[in-house]
């Protein structure tokens, strides 16, 4: 069921997950389109999430926003001006230390070339938030070496988390602690739970699909062709997987496999390295009452769930 409308105020707004950021100068949303978007969301009881770029908005837009009071995701540079918003940082470009205070939520995007810094980046970012959403980027270009490095870095991060948990901290890290708390798939669900409206008023599955055709408009309504392919039961690989924290990113799916419902090998392996690290983390912390209450995560003899459904064989896992 649709619950959220993401409002792309600026086509050059920084990405908040796997898709690439738009290049500036972007097109910004007009007050008229923004007002229509707010009304569209209100009629459908959708919560608004604004995606800010760095281009200043007209005063009329700011008035509409103030009246609607939506959630927002902002570039790191605007974090100071939006104390209630979720800041997005790119590791190696933005300094988490410059984010004022401790945020309830922080998003860090990790370029492939900074992979070796993963644990260090997480360590610094966790000083600034109680929940960190981390997105490794360019994973479609990950080699087997990168995947091995990711696994090693996850092990270091698990050590950091374990130390924090033993001190009683309530820290969440999307790629590790989410799987502990879930009992079924909890994916991004773009196109199903949320849609994105662009500055021109057209609707998209998510900001990553901005240039890949619309799925309706604010005035014409929602028209998602083949919406069934967004559902878990029509995703043969994911339907049998228990890496429940995986974002199951349909933007990445489409980019790498040309289908919404089929993940790449890299996406599956990353999710399963995370799952396995989480499994070991839970074992390590089983003496803590909070963790003993969590259901154990079963060990698996595979990393890529694709290997469990296909007899076609692609020669590797």
């Amino acid at each position: 069921m649709l619950t959220h409308l993401l409002v792309l105020l600026d086509t050059a707004a920084p990405s908040f997950c796997y898709y690439p950021s738009g290049r500036g100068p972007g097109q910004t949303m007009s007050p008229a389109v923004l007002a229509t978007a707010v009304a569209f969301a209100r009629r459908r009881s959708l919560a608004l999430v604004l995606l800010y770029g760095e281009t200043p908005l007209p005063a009329a837009c700011r008035d509409i926003i103030a009246a609607a009071g939506p959630a927002a995701i902002v570039p790191a540079a605007l974090a100071g001006r939006h104390p209630d918003a979720v800041p997005v940082l790119v590791a190696g470009q933005d300094d988490p230390g410059a984010i004022p205070g401790v945020r309830p939520q922080l998003i860090v995007r990790l370029p492939r070339e900074r992979l070796a810094d993963l644990a260090a980046v997480v360590g610094v970012a966790l000083e600034r938030t109680t929940r960190l959403n981390l997105y490794p980027l360019d994973i479609d270009r990950y080699t087997d070496g990168d995947l091995a490095l990711y696994r090693r870095q996850l092990g270091l991060v698990a050590g950091l988390l374990a130390a924090r948990y033993r001190q009683g901290a309530l820290t969440e890290l999307s790629i590790l602690s989410d799987r502990l708390l879930l009992s079924r798939m909890n994916n991004c669900d773009a196109g199903t739970v949320h849609l994105t409206v662009a500055p021109d008023g057209r609707l998209h599955l998510c900001p990553g699909f901005l240039h890949a055709g619309a799925v309706g408009s604010l005035t014409g309504g929602i028209a998602v062709a083949n919406a069934r392919l967004l559902a878990l039961e029509n995703a043969p690989v994911c339907a049998r997987c228990d890496a429940w924290h995986c974002k199951r990113c349909i933007y990445l799916n489409r980019k790498t496999t040309l289908e919404w419902n089929t993940p790449s090998r890299q996406q599956c392996l990353l999710a399963h390295h995370e799952r396995e690290t989480t499994r070991l983390l839970r074992q390590r912390l089983a003496d803590l009452p909070a963790f003993a209450r969590q259901a154990p995560i079963p060990a698996l003899d595979y990393l890529d769930p694709f290997s469990q459904i296909s007899d076609g064989g692609l020669g590797h896992e």
């Binding site: 043969p236 790498t256 496999t257 040309l258 419902n261 089929t262 790449s264 090998r265 459904i309 076609g312």
Partner: peptide, 12 residues
């Protein structure tokens, strides 16, 4: 491109 083959081999 084994990623592009996956949807074909996963088809049900």
């Amino acid at each position: 491109d084994t990623n592009r083959l996956r949807p074909f081999l996963a088809l049900t």
